[in-house]
Every structure is written in C-alpha cells, then in structure tokens.
Design a protein around this nucleic acid. Structure first.
Lengths: 103, 103
DNA sequence: CCTTACGGTAAGTTATGGCTTACAAAGATG
DNA sequence: CATCTTTGTAAGCCATAACTTACCGTAAGG
C-alpha cells in the first residue's frame, strides 16, 4: 500500500535530490540543505513527506536530526513494480503479435 | 533519464488507475474511461502524459485509439530503482550497526 | 452524402503543493 | 543561566496540474 505514498514522494525533483543524497549514508538536515537551491525549512518539509512515505527515517543526535534511507518504502515500490512487470510484458508481447498480423 | 518522467506520471492516483487497467491488455479510450470518476477528455489528457513518459503507446483501430502498456518506461524505472537498492541497503546496514553501538 | 461514434485539443476554473519568512522548542556551550 | 545552534512548524503566496465544458476532425455505416 505504501507505494501509493512513495510514488508522489519521489515525483518531486528536489525531493529526489534529497533522497539521492542519502544514498551513501546518513546526513543531518543542515548538511542535506547545503548546496540545494531551496531554503532549509523547505528541506524539512520534504523530509517529512519522505518519512511519511516510509522512504527515510531519522534519529536524534544531540540537537541534530540525522536522516537515512529506510529500505521499507523502496521495497514496497519494488514489489509493486515487479508484480506489474511480468503481466505488462506478457500483455505487450500479445500486442506486438497483433501488430505483425496486420502486415 | 525517463524515470524522471515516469515517477510524476505514476504519482497521480487517477493516472495509476488508468495504467493498471491496461495491465492485462490493450483497451480503447472509451472503455478505459468507463467506470472512472472523471470525464473522458480528462482520460485523454492522462494518456498523453503516460505516453510522453514512455509508459504507454497507442495504435489506431478504425476510429478508435487502442492504448497498451509500453515496457520501456517501466524498464527505466526498474533500472533506477535497482541501482538505488543495493547502495541504500548497504548504507542502511551501517545505520543499524551504529544504533546497536549506542546501546 | 448525412449522420453517428470516437477521441483529441482549447480555454477557463479550482485545488493542491512547493516555496518563503517568521517563530518556537530543545540541546550544546561558555 | 544566557546564548548560540539546529531543526520543526505556522501562515501565506504563487505556480502548476487536474478537472470541466465546448468544439473540431475523422472514420464507419445507413
């Protein structure tokens, strides 16, 4: 069910940048925001969306909040995609078949 | 590169319904629209977005346009996701490690 | 032909979502 | 304890995206 949240979450370019920045490891909000073309509060809001989608999680570290990728959301997305993949490919083969018949 | 179009395309719930309706085979616009809570022109607009994202393709059949899933867009999305998956999982393991150290 | 069925496009409206600035809370540091 | 750092939240603004109705082109069929 969570892919319904993950897809909109990853649809936004800025949010994708944030997400991709965490690919190699955890980072506090300030570090994530540094270099991005939006304000730090904007980054906080994006992180909230990503968290609600199960794509990231965070942990307190003093006054900082360290964010890292949560595989849960990614796994849900993969599951949905894979389930689709087989059926869609099969249907596509049938389509190509029809196309060739026409000629 | 096309995953950047595929993600926003699949982020919309109505568009996902349309896409999922084509999972098992091709359908003309009218059939797709039937049962959906939006007007037929809206469906046409959604199909255009899906097509530009490489997620569907269409073929003329008399006065009808038959739409079907194009594996191309789906494949791009899978590739992006898989590439992410390995690195993210590794980073997550390091995270859990740190968590346990704290205790 | 004339009409009917089908679907794309244009124009306009409205809701949503991403951004900003301002503010508040909570831990570190002297 | 005062202050500084780091972050989340609130309120408001604005662009965009999803929808509607109206219209047009095109193929089928009497």
């Amino acid at each position: 069910m969570a892919y319904k949240d993950a897809l909109p979450a990853l649809a936004d370019p800025t949010r994708r940048k944030i997400f991709e920045r965490l690919r190699h490891g955890a980072k506090p909000v300030g570090v994530i925001a540094k270099g991005l073309p939006v304000s730090r509060p904007a980054v906080s809001q994006h992180l909230k969306v990503l968290k609600e989608a199960g794509l990231v999680d965070d942990r307190a570290e003093g006054t900082r909040r360290v964010y890292y990728i949560d595989p849960k959301g990614l796994a849900d997305l993969r599951r949905w995609l894979d389930q689709f993949w087989d059926e869609a490919l099969e249907a596509f083969r049938a389509e190509v078949e029809k196309d060739h018949e026409k000629k």
